[in-house]
Design a protein around this nucleic acid. Sequence first.
DNA 1: CTCAAATAGTTTAATATTAAACCATATGGC
DNA 2: GCCATATGGTTTAATATTAAACTATTTGAG
Lengths: 150, 150
Amino acid sequence: MPTHYRGTAGERRALNAYIALLRAAESVTSRLAGPLGREGLTTGQFGVLEALLHLGPMCQKTLGRKLLRSGGNITLVVDHLEHRGLVSRRRAGADRRFVTVELTEAGKTVIRQTFPSHAKRIVGEMKPLAPGEQESLRRLCRRLGRGGGA
Amino acid sequence: MPTHYRGTAGERRALNAYIALLRAAESVTSRLAGPLGREGLTTGQFGVLEALLHLGPMCQKTLGRKLLRSGGNITLVVDHLEHRGLVSRRRAGADRRFVTVELTEAGKTVIRQTFPSHAKRIVGEMKPLAPGEQESLRRLCRRLGRGGGA
DNA sequence: CTCAAATAGTTTAATATTAAACCATATGGC
DNA sequence: GCCATATGGTTTAATATTAAACTATTTGAG
């Protein structure tokens, strides 16, 4: 659904690129969320578990930064995961402000079971693009993610 | 934040492209949401108003399809907009199931005031990419948005 | 040493987001 | 004409998402 805005060519180009970016991200994520939900995880919960699996235990602040989520949201998502016994929290260092989050054994089991099939689905979602195109997409998106805003 | 998953090269490529896509979409949207919020609109509300401005009145089902949102969510967002007097709803056709949503005069005023500055911000966010690159991004994303899932 | 400023996390309030259940309306095979 | 099925919208329940306010802890200038 491209924009119907009648601005300059440059404006329309930027708007159309932005809209296409959003729609791609939203529709792919939406398609991936269904199977994930049937395994009992929301997209956000999966993101937390995956970060902890691959990057190791970390404080909530770091989690929020890596996942681009607010502090309040991390607290809530980690609350739920903790309730399910998938992660644990503790104030592990000398600085008592920091709460370190790490996977429990149950959490490791769940994410190790879930991740491979999720990865396969992502591969499938990227199939419309050839390898070089996937690379191009990645490079273009990384430049946007850094923050434009002239 | 690329994946630390040790799968095949193809898997890592797909995962990294997907992650970059998500991060770009989320970070740009997040940066745009701030100024929009200060004008009193959420991203979702803006989407509805903009669609109605450029595409004309339409039923909620159509709104949901164009904006990639669920029926329940459209009901809620439109509820709030209606409460603020920015849109109106009526069962306009012979089929009494359909609710047509359209901008009120107040709604037109708001979106006409808000849209140009928002468009400018989007242009700014796309600045890291040259015109041709914006085109490439749009083409790549459109192919993903259609639904892969091999 | 004191205390203003900074920082991590939590709470609060408002809105968003979905799937599923529910209700009203329309459709079309029998 | 009857009724099972389909469809648009609403409601329900659960979770997500944010900014701002709040609490506790840390830092570093004076």
